[in-house]
Amino acid sequence: MNIAFFGSSLVSSYWNGAATYYRGLLKEIAALGHAVTFFEPDALERQAHRDIDDPDWARVVIYPATSDGWQHSLAQAARSADLVVKASGVGVFDEELDSAIAGLPMRPLRIYWDVDAPATLQAVGENRSHHLRSAVPRYDLVLTYGGGERVISAYRAIGARDCVPIYNALDPRTHFPLQSNSSFAYDLGLLANRLPDREARIEEYFFRAARALPAKRFVLGGSGWDSGRIPANVERLGHVGTGHHNAFFASALATLNVNRASMAEYGFSPPTRIFEAAGAGACLITDAWEGIERFLEPDSEILVAADGEAVAAHLQSLTSARAAEIAGRARRRILAHHTYRQRALQFDRLMEGLNPRTEAAE
């Protein structure tokens, strides 16, 4: 199958948390024999912050972030693709692409792939005239990288023919344990870009814990934290490229995961950081969200905190030996049940199940 995939970026993780999801999943989809062309706009300074070269398992087409740019790319894709995928959050001309791909002729097949379903559905729920209400019913399938029954039901309620979560996972060839790096050897680490719907939760879970434990050392990686009231025991690193993620995760006593507010509300949307950090050998502390036990067992494979006070309590009692035990159990669980190879096989089965449409069905 020739797959044309319109997403934010495959080659840059700059302000683009979905990059490692795309890389892990599409690499394994390509390994199953599919040809992947990834279309991404030259936008938001991502090309100036590339962290990988064009991969050998996908063709990357970078188009101008203009109306002519996306239209030309879509016309090119529609001529040769068996399947056109539109991911959420491309960053420019999303509404136009969402609607244009939904309106393609009966062939190629069309999939809407939501990499932030809770936030998308919240926006749709608050706006009765949201463009996805008319676009989604025209797609052959909606895929999401999380969500569980609430997301599935919500998408079906706005007319999706079907909605299937393909969860984040681990690429063990990309994320694996390294020796500790003194540059990241803190008590608690967090990788998170500064976003409006996550900032208050990071204040609660990370900064509050740092203020409660002034003798502990905290490290914050991610873009956007240049200003603001940051505790004195928090070191800010700015953007941390994916090439340094393994060292980051492996070096701190523990790594914190903080979901965005909408993800925590919907549950069943484990971010890529959970799988990547576990694969790199991190001891994870996470904010509480529905469905976590489906992926990692609380208190055995991951530590769960209801608030910043609980994060501080976990960190205060955590020894190096216990952190290593938790990290080891988590990595074994992820390797056994949550790799991108397994997710790609799920995608392949879904594609086999999509009935080819004929011109007579128009």
Rank of each mutant, 00 (worst) to 15 (best):
N246V: 09
I285D: 02
A321P: 00
Q47N: 15
Q47W: 00
F39K: 07
T242P: 04
E149P: 07
D51M: 00
A4G: 10
R133Y: 04
S300G: 13
R329N: 12
L74G: 07
G281Y: 03
G267N: 06
H337E: 11
A65H: 03
S183W: 12
P231R: 05
F218C: 08
R107I: 00
D114F: 03
I202F: 02
S134I: 00
S183K: 10
E235W: 01
S153P: 03
I292C: 05
L350W: 04
L74M: 04
E235I: 14
G146V: 03
D98S: 07
Y63L: 04
G89I: 06
I52Q: 13
L141C: 05
T174H: 12
P196S: 12
R322Y: 01
P165R: 01
S223I: 10
E204R: 13
G238P: 06
R173G: 04
Y205G: 05
A35I: 07
E297N: 00
A123Q: 15
R322D: 06
A336C: 01
L97M: 15
G222N: 03
R357W: 11
L195I: 13
T319E: 06
V151C: 03
Y266G: 00
N127P: 00
A157D: 13
L32C: 01
A157T: 11
Y14A: 11
F176T: 07
S12P: 03
G221D: 08
E95L: 11
G328V: 10
L220R: 01
N246M: 10
A35G: 14
D348E: 14
I285A: 04
S129F: 06
E149A: 15
G291A: 07
T255L: 04
G243P: 06
L220I: 13
R150W: 08
Q71T: 07
H245V: 03
